[in-house]
């Protein structure tokens, strides 16, 4: 094949990429670059012109009385939710893997909430957590444990744990399925070999299951972290960030600044902070998890 026909071929390939590239470029990449650029200006959200103001927006966002709380809430959710979700999902996946019978039924049940809209999930749980008529408090009052009937979403110290529980109910099934596909990929011979050596079930778990699941664990931790950092719909419907700023996250605050209180320049500064935060977390996680995978193999 001569070089002019291979050039034609490359041009054709480029034409195939063009529609998708244009959509990504105009509707995601350009706005992202604009965010970066405009976060250093006094942009009002409408005008095409704006004045450079340096780091002013970042200073305003960071010095706002709610900033520490918002960052704390986001990190709190990460630290509680990600380990809890992954341990629980792995636990359920192992049970389903071991029973073999009825596996499909269990998978369907645990995956069912994941098919619902987070808007729906938010409303259902808002009613379930309700102080006067919610079924959780009804249950505690019926069995005589009145002290346990709490204002689950109204009490500043309970709202984040309640929200964590709701997110786990919603998300668990997806992560169970990923762990299960990891478990099914472990060759049975590996278990048989350790059995011949007389390994206990705990040893099998530590020496075979966990190392062989390393890729699935990596995927799940990274997916659940990205998902949580950018999570909007569920907290928005469930608490709207309240009471006060007690369950406000960075992702929610960007929406409020950009579209409710109409301070787009501050929304942009916070979005840039979120972007940097997300990238840093992913890089750190990748480093740790990859290293762990290598150590095991």
């Amino acid at each position: 094949m001569n070089s002019s026909s291979s050039r034609v071929r490359l041009l054709q390939c480029f034409a195939f990429c063009l529609p998708a590239a244009i959509i990504i470029f105009i509707f995601f990449f350009v706005p992202m670059v604009r965010s970066l650029q405009l976060s250093f200006t006094d942009w009002d959200g409408i005008s095409l012109t704006s004045q450079w103001v340096g780091l002013d927006n970042f200073r305003t966002v960071i010095s706002h009385r709610s900033f520490n709380q918002i960052v704390r809430n986001t990190i709190y959710l990460m630290v509680i939710y990600i380990p809890l979700l992954n341990v629980f999902a792995l636990f359920i996946a192992i049970q389903i893997y071991e029973v073999k019978n009825l596996g499909n039924l269990y998978k369907t049940v645990f995956f069912l909430p994941n098919m619902l809209s987070m808007t729906v999930v938010g409303f259902i749980w808002k009613l379930i957590f309700s102080f006067h008529n919610g079924i959780i408090n009804k249950f505690f009052r019926t069995v005589g444990l009145n002290a346990l009937a709490n204002d689950w979403l109204g009490d500043p110290s309970l709202v984040l744990p309640s929200m964590t529980m709701t997110i786990i109910w919603y998300a668990l099934g997806y992560y169970v399925l990923i762990y299960l596909s990891g478990l099914y990929n472990i060759p049975v011979e590996l278990y048989e070999a350790t059995e011949v050596e007389g390994a206990s079930s705990r040893q099998k778990f530590v020496n075979v299951t966990i190392p062989m699941l390393a890729p699935a664990i990596t995927i799940n931790i990274i997916l659940s972290t990205i998902g949580l950092i950018t999570l909007f719909d569920l907290p928005f419907v469930l608490t709207g960030g309240g009471p006060g700023y007690n369950s406000q996250t960075i992702a929610l605050q960007i929406y409020y600044l950009g579209f409710v209180t109409l301070q787009p320049k501050l929304a942009l500064a916070l979005a840039v902070i979120l972007g940097i935060f997300a990238i840093l977390i992913i890089i750190v996680l990748m480093k740790i998890l990859r290293k762990r995978e290598e150590n095991i193999l």
Binding site: F28, V30, P31, G45, I226, P264, I279
Partner: peptide
């Protein structure tokens, strides 16, 4: 380049995108 974009949050593009 596309793969890097997968990991970036939607919130980063949201506000200028809507104005556009």
């Amino acid at each position: 380049f596309f793969i890097i974009l997968i990991t970036l949050p939607f919130q980063l593009a949201m506000v200028p995108l809507i104005s556009m």
